[in-house]
Design a protein around this nucleic acid. Structure first.
Lengths: 192, 192
DNA sequence: ATGCTAACTGAACAGTCGTTCAAATCAATC
DNA sequence: GATTGATTTGAACGACTGTTCAGTTAGCAT
């Protein structure tokens, strides 16, 4: 996973992988049918990890509370597995068609929860979104970007990052967030 | 550029590139020193394109107006060159160190304008951001995500996409956007 | 037609790729 | 200590990699 994340699937040889785990290339084939299956296993296991962990962390409540839970989960989970997130989004194009379809389906399952939250919130009038579908993709992209600059020994703790991103997402969806004091108005001229 | 964008630098052979332009592999070496230089040229030319075009489109004004200009420029420019954007962000790891440093510097020049806008806006109190540096990266990530789903024959026109993303960005930075009617309050309890 | 230059071909080079497999090694049981 | 079964090695396979280059082709000025 580490090699794929840093160098890319196509640029990593079976001999490099073997060397990384202290073995000759041929020995790898006792554990994987071929290189493609190895990539597929890594991605499938990761996606299942994400879905299982999310299932466990999921909770009912207002769309705003669910959105906060989703955003902080997504960041927290992937800050602990930056390599897996990188591979899952950058190596999709190296999957054979049937494998791609499977991973894509799992990814969609995960992102569908976010889309549902945004749709619910928009329907209830507590979010202000033109297009929940695109907002879903935009938010996921924004959150995923964190793995490109995050360093464990950097100036920010995981919880800081979660809060910063949550703040931006909350405002981005136009949440009328009365409960905790910060306010955002939706209707034109509602104040002015 | 198209091959690199769709298959990845490491997965594309010089023979494939040659076939795409109707020539034998050897002929390519009249135009590029080697494969790495070809990638470098594509990326350098693109980054220079971006910077030149941005320089031309740049304008003074309030941070809010400058932010709107930047966001719509970024989306519009890259929707016309999705392959170039994909390559510029996904193939950074395939650049040799000195090439990487050059491209990285150009990229930073470009993103620095956004960071400056966000810092100015925050200093003037018209944006509400905890961390302009991270907000810059978050916004760029969000905007770049558009190339992963955009299809020229899709349901949305370029201008629609610009407006949707601009709406999300404007809210994400917590802009107090009184001028055009939509309002967003920053201070806790300002309305309630 | 001739000469000149630039462009291209097609074969070849030395490596590396993913993958296979007989032979060697290891660990555990009887 | 012998036997068994699982693991690993190390060499080999054919295909493909980026790159080079002598030889051919094409276009143009004389």
């Amino acid at each position: 996973m580490r090699l794929f994340a840093h160098l890319g699937y196509a640029a990593v040889s079976m001999r490099q992988i073997a060397a990384e785990v202290g073995v000759q290339a041929g020995a790898l084939y006792n554990y994987t049918a071929d290189k493609q299956s190895l990539l597929m296993s890594l991605m499938e296991l990761h996606m299942q990890d994400v879905l299982d962990a999310r299932q466990a962390a999921r909770s009912e409540g207002t769309p705003l509370a669910r959105l906060e839970s989703f955003v902080k989960f997504h960041i927290g989970f992937h800050l602990a597995r930056p390599d897996a997130l990188l591979v899952s989004y950058m190596e999709l194009r190296n999957l054979e068609p049937e494998n791609f379809a499977k991973i894509e389906a799992l990814r969609r399952d995960y992102e569908n929860e976010l889309e549902r939250i945004l749709s619910d919130g928009t329907a209830q009038g507590i979010f202000s979104l033109d297009d929940p579908k695109i907002a879903t993709l935009a938010i996921i992209s924004m959150l995923n970007g964190v793995v490109h600059w995050f360093r464990p020994d950097g100036r920010l703790e995981q919880v800081d990052i979660e809060e910063i991103y949550w703040g931006m997402v909350r405002r981005a969806v136009g949440a009328t967030d009365w409960s905790d004091g910060s306010v955002c108005c939706l209707d034109k001229g509602a104040i002015a």
